[in-house]
């Protein structure tokens, strides 16, 4: 998706840390997901923690930021003096570090959102910031300058969740996975909800989002699926008629280490199918003769998944 010229007479190039006094009360809790694989250089992380430093300095608007760091990342990287210094002088200085053993990124989200929620209050907003993006390059800086809009939209416009939309070219692996895998499977298992989700976003697995306290409480109280949490969150938002917003945060690509291989793309499609099946059963498992409909959908789902994997193999293999 190519993003539009900005209609403003003056484009936004700077972060506006200070919000108008007229805004609704409620603090913003930034939650930074530290990259699972420590990058060789610190350009992207320095840019990200430049933002975190500013957030930490504005205690009127923001709660103390939280960084979630997997212990495997820590032990792997701690042989490096540069990493130890960065953690001590930057990460720990500008945020509270949650050290945890996580099986995947979704567990890192859970480990960060949970403690932040426990510190929060009823009008607060929780803002997830993925660490493994190329914030150090000019286009990444533009994204950093826009991310603050996500929690602000929730506070100012009384929304429940705001998804950050990232533009990529049509051959980007994430785009391909979402087009041929995520949405195809969503249309099979939850056709009505899928249509509504697509009215907002082409990226239902976006890692950029902010969520209101009340909705986060509902999400945390439900079963926490081990993957594709943004899809789960959007479905739950549509099920319960939450107020969803989408905001364009820019053009960005993963750092090279995070780009999808075919194997990784296949795994993501399979995970999405697993989660959607589980959610469908959770929602319909008490209905009479639900297994008959489930078998039909499961057969269709298998065909959808196989087609997606064939397409991805042709395009990424």
């Amino acid at each position: 998706m190519n993003k539009p010229e900005v209609t403003q007479s003056k484009t936004r190039t700077k972060r506006d840390k200070t919000l108008p006094t007229s805004r609704k009360t409620g603090k913003i809790h930034p939650i930074i997901i530290y990259p699972f694989v420590q990058p060789d250089d610190f350009d992207d992380l320095n840019a990200l923690y430049g933002l975190v430093e500013h957030l930490d300095a504005d205690r009127q608007t923001y709660a103390r930021p939280v960084t979630v760091m997997d212990r495997k990342t820590y032990y792997e990287a701690s042989r490096s003096r540069a990493f130890r210094e960065f953690r001590a002088k930057t990460v720990e200085r500008f945020s509270d570090v949650v050290d945890c053993w996580c099986v995947d990124t979704c567990q890192m989200w859970y480990s960060g959102l949970g403690p932040a929620f426990e510190r929060g209050a009823s009008n607060d907003v929780y803002w997830l910031i993925p660490g493994d993006f190329n914030y150090g390059v000019p286009v990444g800086q533009e994204v950093l300058n826009r991310l603050h809009d996500l929690p602000e939209i929730i506070l100012e416009l009384g929304q429940d969740v705001c998804i950050g939309e990232i533009a990529t070219d049509h051959t980007n692996s994430k785009q391909l996975i979402d087009t041929y895998g995520t949405f195809a499977l969503l249309y099979n298992w939850f056709p009505v909800e899928a249509q509504e989700i697509r009215e907002y976003t082409e990226r239902p697995r976006s890692e950029f989002f902010a969520v209101h306290h009340t909705f986060l409480r509902e999400l945390l109280a439900r079963k926490w699926y081990p993957c594709e949490q943004t899809v789960v969150m959007l479905l739950r938002a549509v099920f319960s008629r939450k107020r969803i917003s989408q905001f364009f945060v820019g053009h960005i690509s993963d750092v090279p280490g995070g780009r999808e291989s075919l194997s990784s793309a296949m795994q993501q499609v399979e995970r999405t199918e697993t989660v959607l099946k589980a959610m469908w059963r959770e929602r319909n498992g008490t209905k009479k003769n639900w297994t008959d409909q489930y078998r039909v959908l499961e057969n269709q789902s298998e065909r959808v998944r196989r087609s997606a994997l064939t397409i991805l193999a042709n395009l990424l293999g």
């Binding site: 539009p4 010229e5 900005v6 209609t7 403003q8 936004r12 700077k14 506006d16 809009d149 939209i153 416009l157 929304q159 939309e165 009215e199 907002y200 107020r243 969803i244 917003s245 989408q246 905001f247 364009f248």
Partner: peptide
């Protein structure tokens, strides 16, 4: 607005566009 920076709903529930002003 196809060039808008975001999408949300109005109080009536209609899909509408979003513009940030800084």
């Amino acid at each position: 607005d196809p060039r808008a920076q975001g999408i949300t709903r109005s109080d009536k529930g209609e899909r509408v566009s979003l513009v940030p002003v800084s």
